[in-house]
Design a protein around this nucleic acid. Structure first.
Length: 564
RNA sequence: GCGCCCAUAGCUCAACCGGAUAGAGCAUCAGCCUUCUAAGCUGAGGGUUAGUGGUUCGAGUCCACUUGGGCGUACCA
């Protein structure tokens, strides 16, 4: 890298690109150097983070505070020694200061900070990606709703967050497989098929009793109507599980896929639970458990010794009817994920499934698989409010608001951003009335507006014969400029942290901060109309902001409009 | 009853491995468009971070208990 100052620390310049991570790497090198020279114990963590207040520098460490106990000395004394011994490149670091309790605050030089703009222009739509996990594969399983009805708002959170997590993993280098696991057999599906059959019989003029615990949704009637249209009353003697169930399954799956597609979500694999039976995996697993002595028979059922694996209690894996419970195929399914050799296996469930995964993991551990590869993410439920009323979702009772209805009302961008804003553990209250009425006040517009604004500036500038240039970016020394550029520095690191913690919410928070800094700059400082070289540099900066917003929104699956 | 998750401004949410004065948006109030998009900006008010105790240089963050909510606790998925 030609921009690397000559005296920079060893190893630092070998990194391509900058950003906060590189700055931290540099600090780590020069601090470790001091630690060895001063013979300070090196078993305390050396952490640099971005202080909340600008007055506290660009990066800061609490090293002296952490050392006080170890050295039994005053933190300020230790800090003084460290700061005096610190040798650093003046072209990178402006100053290092030691303050009150024992923080060391580091300030970077403006020209050095500004260099990130070149990186962003060079890497463009790839800026923010990382090769940290290149060559690794990941499987992200999400949605996985059985085809018994359209997706509800409740599924929206899972769908959106799952897809965003997959995006984040791709950004840091993983080859990601998006997977949807479903079950088209069993009692639920029998009831579904029979629900359609009964509606069909109604249409054929039969008087039927439609049980209360059958699927009440309007879509059942529609499926029945299409069957009636196609076959007349030829199907009146068909069993529920044949044509009725098949029609329901395929039509509902079509609905689900369309909803997902509207949100830009496409799964690569739809894994049918049934194949686990037909290819003998279920039986194979049962035999293996028996051989290993981890299962036993009681009351005509087969039980798994989960209690011996440290879980609460033993559970039935095969009912006395001979039918496996969901646990067994779940285990077999995860075995296939291991056999498919993923380096990372992510499962995203709603909190209603929180109780099942410890058993699955325990069984996998007993089978000898490296369970640390599996990251089970549990997202909390979204409480849907209509005014003051809580809407309890139930597919069976047809008491729900579909994801499609929400997308119709709010639009895909708003829906994606809305679910992505939140950390997975957050219990959220979602007031539908409010979402409809105030949708133009959704924070997503704040980000999109910043992007559109920059596009508009670029258009206007180009009409005025002005274009961006990297030649004079050193002119960008105003506080509003530096502040903005420093936020740009953080993007690759934020992306990596988001991917490592599997938290989509981080990206949204970061982008809000970036957009805020840009809007502030925009109001305070003019681009067009300022002195030519400065204007060109500011344009280059604005383009860099635009790139980062676009890339960030891209990860969230939200569009970056050129005009609004 | 037991287990997991959660509780932060009036509302919806942030706060990276425990750090410096707990931050945004909405709502309220007061200002800012003859110049690049006012879907924007500036400022004000608004908090005992549910409560109590503990750990330590330092706690919204960790531990214990209490209260209030969500989800489980099936030979349903």
């Amino acid at each position: 890298m030609g921009r690397c100052p000559r005296g920079s620390a060893q190893g630092y310049c070998e990194k391509s690109g900058r950003g906060n991570r590189e700055l931290k790497n540099y600090l780590e090198i020069i601090f470790k150097d001091v630690i060895t020279r001063l013979n300070i114990p090196d078993d305390v963590p050396l952490i640099f983070d971005t202080p909340k207040s600008e007055a506290h520098g660009d990066l800061a460490t609490n090293l002296p505070l952490l050392l006080t106990k170890k050295l039994k000395r005053n933190p300020m004394e230790i800090g003084t020694e460290i700061c005096n011994a610190l040798s650093y490149d003046k072209e990178i670091i402006e100053k290092v200061e030691l303050v009150k309790p024992g923080f060391v605050n580091i300030f970077f030089t403006a020209p050095y900070i500004t260099g990130i703009i070149q990186d962003i222009h060079r890497e463009n739509e790839r800026f923010g990606t990382s090769s940290k996990y290149s060559g690794k594969t990941a499987n992200v399983e999400f949605v996985s709703a059985n085809p018994t009805g359209p997706l509800t708002v409740g599924h929206g959170r899972n769908a959106v967050c799952g897809d965003t997590i997959a995006n984040m993993l791709e950004w840091v280098g993983y080859d990601v497989t998006r997977e949807y696991y479903f079950n088209n057999a069993g009692r639920q599906m029998r009831v579904l098929g029979d629900s359609v059959r009964l509606r069909y019989l109604e249409l054929c003029g039969e008087a039927v009793m439609f049980p209360e615990d059958y699927y009440q949704g309007e879509y059942i009637r529609e499926i029945a109507a299409r069957l009636e249209e196609k076959h007349g009353d030829d199907l009146m003697n068909e069993p529920a599980e044949g044509k009725f169930k098949d029609a329901a399954e395929s039509e509902i799956f079509e609905l689900i896929k369309v909803s997902l597609e509207r949100l830009g979500i496409k799964h690569k694999i739809f894994y049918n639970e049934n194949t686990l039976y037909t290819d003998g995996r279920i039986d194979g697993l049962l035999n293996k458990f028996k051989e290993m002595g981890v299962s036993y028979e009681k009351d005509g059922a087969v039980w798994f010794r989960f209690s011996e694996a440290g879980n609460e209690q033993d559970k039935v894996i095969v009912k006395s009817t001979g039918e496996p419970t969901y646990r067994l195929p779940d285990i077999a399914y995860h075995v296939t994920k291991f056999e498919r050799n993923y380096d990372l296996i992510v499962d995203l469930f709603g909190s209603d499934h929180a109780a099942t995964y410890p058993d699955v993991l325990a069984a996998l551990r007993i089978l000898g698989y490296d369970v640390s590869k599996v990251k089970v993410l549990i997202h909390q439920f979204v409480t849907i409010m209509q005014g003051n009323e809580v809407i309890k979702m139930s597919t069976r009772k047809a008491n729900y608001i579909t994801l499609d209805e929400l997308i119709d009302e709010a639009g895909s961008d708003v829906v994606r951003f809305f679910f992505n804003m939140l950390n997975l553990g957050t219990h959220m209250n979602f007031d539908l009335e409010l979402a409809k009425k105030h949708s133009d006040e959704n924070p997503v517009f704040y980000l999109q507006y910043a992007h559109a604004r920059i596009c508009s500036i670029i258009r206007t500038a180009s009409e005025a014969g002005l274009s961006s240039s990297l030649d004079n970016i050193h002119l960008l020394i105003l506080p509003d400029e530096q502040r903005l550029i420093k936020i740009l520095h953080r993007f690759p690191e934020e992306m990596l942290t988001a991917a490592d913690t599997l938290e989509p919410g981080r990206i949204a928070s970061y982008l809000k901060e970036l957009a805020a800094a840009f809007h502030r700059f925009y109001v305070a400082i003019r681009i067009i109309g300022s002195e030519k070289e400065t204007a060109e540099a500011r344009l280059a900066m604005a383009e860099a902001v635009k790139t980062v917003i676009k890339n960030g929104l891209g990860v969230l699956g939200v569009s970056a409009p050129e005009r609004m």
